[in-house]
């Protein structure tokens, strides 16, 4: 199976247009971009994907060991870009995928000509003078909640054991938007919230836009400012909205700042 199929890749927009790759963060899959993507599909080639273990990605794409580090996701994303062979792209990463995008750009500058980091945080845990917003206990609390919530996921093996192959729930599962396998989600949460990518930021060589929400309880403004200050030449745009997903709560404003950053196209 091709990597594109494994990661449920969809490509839309005119064939020769500049390429924008949208990478969802910790949480739901590529549908997170559904209010933002149309704004780019008129004059950009827009690539959407589900990260290993998320959304509709093939379950076989996820490996507990390889995806126990963000570098595992980095390598998958770089391999996907190699396979798609669309030339250097604008990589738009939300939340933890902002850091994955940073890692891709640093490792493979030939693949990424611009970076857009949506509500990024290079480190979620407070550390000395650095304010990430969270203590270690908070992350343990989150992991506990992840294991208590199945959010539409039902282990097919457990269903089999229960001897209920008819399972009316199957249709519901298909429809569930944020279906999350608890063990995978807990592992993704751990790698997301316990990571520290502060040292990677100064190595970015592509023009970078940081997009923050004015009130974000996951990635506070201090986290966004740190990312801007650490990446050479990066600019920060703050969207006047609440929450961690400005592309959901304020898609028009978010599209606007990203478009301003992309025009004129660098090629």
């Amino acid at each position: 199976m091709s990597r594109a199929r494994m990661l449920n890749v969809s490509v839309r927009g005119p064939a020769d247009a500049p390429v924008v790759v949208l990478v969802h963060g910790f949480g739901c899959g590529q549908h997170m971009w559904r209010h933002l993507a149309p704004a780019f599909e008129v004059d950009h080639r827009v690539v959407l994907l589900d990260l290993p273990g998320s959304g509709e990605a093939d379950p076989a794409s996820y490996d507990t060991v390889r995806h126990g580090r963000l570098e595992g996701y980095r390598d998958d994303l770089a391999a996907l870009l190699d396979e798609l062979a669309l030339g250097p792209v604008t990589l738009v990463g939300h939340s933890v995928s902002a850091m994955i995008s940073v890692l891709v750009q640093v490792a493979r500058p030939d693949l990424v000509e611009r970076l857009v980091l949506v509500t990024p945080s290079a480190r979620y845990l407070d550390d000395g003078e650095y304010v990430g917003g969270f203590a270690a206990d908070d992350i343990d609390d989150l992991l506990g909640l992840m294991s208590r919530n199945h959010l539409g996921w039902q282990d097919p093996l457990a269903t089999l054991v229960a001897g209920d192959p008819s399972s009316d729930t199957h249709g519901e599962l298909e429809a569930s938007f944020c279906r999350t396998r608890p063990d995978v989600a807990a592992e993704f949460a751990a790698v997301t919230f316990r990571g520290d990518n502060r040292a990677d930021l100064p190595r970015v060589t592509a023009p970078t836009l940081v997009v923050q929400a004015a009130q974000d309880s996951v990635a506070p403004l201090t986290a966004g400012a740190f990312v801007r200050d650490s990446i050479p030449g990066a600019v920060l745009e703050v969207i006047d909205t609440r929450g961690h997903c400005p592309h959901l709560t304020a898609p028009a404003e978010t599209a606007e700042v990203v478009r301003r950053f992309l025009v004129p196209a660098p090629r």
Binding site: L145, N149, F177, C178, F193, V218, H244
Partner: peptide, 20 residues
């Protein structure tokens, strides 16, 4: 909510609520 609950709310529940 607890802090962990806030993260779950922001990353999963509100996007689900918005979608479904």
């Amino acid at each position: 909510l607890t802090v962990g609950g806030r993260i779950l709310l922001e990353t999963h529940l509100l996007p689900m609520l918005e979608h479904d």
